[in-house]
Amino acid sequence: MKEALETIVKGIVKNPDEVDIFETEEDGNVVFELVLNPEDVGQIIGKNGRTIKSINILLNSLAGAKNEKFILKVKR
């Protein structure tokens, strides 16, 4: 799912070369920490968090049957 997240994020940021994703685990959930160029942080979160929420919905449905819960964190 990390590759999927990378594909999604790199397609919508201005600086795809500066995208870093770190995968950790917290209370049985998969946590992805996104490190981006500061310029792209607003874009990836979106108005009222709509974009980051959309990405999360998408990831969860791509994972499908496994029923994992993903948590996304954005850092600059």
Binding site: M1, A4, T7, G11, L62
Partner: peptide, 8 residues
Amino acid sequence: GILSFSNG
């Protein structure tokens, strides 16, 4: 590309 990561 995005959907290619899904299982199924």
